[in-house]
Amino acid sequence: MKHVLPVAIVVAAIIALWYVACLFMNAQLQRDLFANSGNTTYSASDFVTAEWSMERPKLPAPHQIVAELDHTIFGMDPSSKRSLVYHASITLQETLLGFAIGSALGILLAVLVVHLRGLDKSLMPWIVASQTIPIIALAPMIVVILNQFDITGVLPKAVIAAYLSFFPVTVGMVKGLRSPDPLQLDLMRTYSATRTQTFFKLRAPASAPFFFASMKVAVAAALVGAVVAEVTKSEDGGLGARLLAGSYYGQTVQIWAALFAAAICSAALVAIVGLVDRATARRMGYAR
């Protein structure tokens, strides 16, 4: 637990800096506001408190974001379209579905690449190349194409989430399935194990640490994919749609609240994968 104190201090410093930054970034706006309302006799402390509680600040103060989060998470009916719980649940559905599709596809590809020599040479370069492409550019189009086939709702966005999350899984699992060293593979051969046996008894267990490492990356990537997909198809709601609506109407507090909600979701998902990882590691005996 030697990290707790330093992290707490750094976080406190960031929050303090944030408040200071608010003063600078909102100063002009607040001056104009006071000038417009004819208020010329304000004191410095009036000015500062006003800056920290503006309705549409350039940079909202942390307590405003927390208040907005509190209001839209706990202060509202979860089925209301203004509730962040409603939007977050949409995003999470897309993320989890996309993550499931993406990691299944990623594992399948990795198994194929490890076992078929031809694929390793012909497919792997394309898998790598597919990631140097700004995939997100495809998002609006995938949504439109799937719409033509009457596929709407969660699935098109899950597909984009899957596209983003399959790559780390493939790369990590190829590495993991190849991680047994030649000695161990030779041992399997002396046992005259079949390829299936070698796979399930040696390769798959050996890839467990790689599996969880890539799952963490993949679940975070899936959430990014879901959020961006929602930006391009915002009428169904979701945290990405909240971001877009906030930017249309200049509701900065709403944007920041949506951003924090997305961050909390992402951190929670990664933490869950981490917990499963630790439990598995302990059971399988590779925990440090």
């Binding site: 963490k216 959020v227 990405g240 877009l244 992402s266």
Partner: peptide, 15 residues
């Protein structure tokens, strides 16, 4: 690095 940082896009466009 695990957070959806692209989300800051609307804020940066505003700034």
């Amino acid at each position: 690095s695990a957070l959806p940082i692209v989300g800051v896009a609307p804020i940066m466009v505003m700034w």
